[in-house]
Nucleic acid binder design. Structure first.
Length: 139
DNA sequence: GCCAACGTTGGC
DNA sequence: GCCAACGTTGGC
């Protein structure tokens, strides 16, 4: 299993919106960036991801699971844009903020820190375990 | 609300 | 194929 991070502005699509979709999940649509699309193309069903709120909150708030592999984005006019489907699994007992991540030397290599604008990112197994622990999950 | 970073577009 | 202009994102 591999690990990922999905970034969203809560005003556009929040963790609460994602939770409300339940096990049916939802397309992670709207990505119009090649690098982020290519990351999604590497995902397989069952992979886990962090759900990150950008803007005002700037924190990892929940865990999601990939439930459908990369397919054409149903909302895109242009067929070059793909996306996966994800569902909410559970919230983090304690959200892990960007400040906490930046303050943790083990997480200095995270794409979240090094490539702030990439909206879909890979996360290593070590980073996954660390952030889960910081958020109050065994992982 | 501003600004830096950076991806994309379009003219040459 | 390069590069300047432009638009968008996201942190502060």
């Amino acid at each position: 299993m591999r690990f990922w991070l999905f970034k969203s502005e809560p005003s556009a699509w929040s963790w609460q919106d994602q939770l409300a979709k339940g096990d049916a999940g939802e397309e992670w649509d709207g990505v119009r960036n090649y690098q982020a699309r290519n990351v999604m193309r590497e995902m397989t069903v069952g992979d886990r991801g962090f759900f990150y709120h950008s803007q005002s909150e700037k924190a990892v708030v929940g865990i999601v699971e990939v439930i459908a592999e990369s397919h054409p984005d149903s909302k895109a006019e242009d067929p070059r844009w793909d996306c996966v489907d994800i569902k909410a699994v559970k919230p983090l007992p304690r959200p892990v903020t960007l400040d906490q991540i930046k303050a943790e030397p083990d997480l200095a290599g995270m794409a979240l820190v090094k490539q702030a604008r990439l909206s879909v990112q890979p996360v290593t197994a070590d980073e996954w375990a660390k952030v889960c622990a910081m958020g109050g999950l065994d992982s």
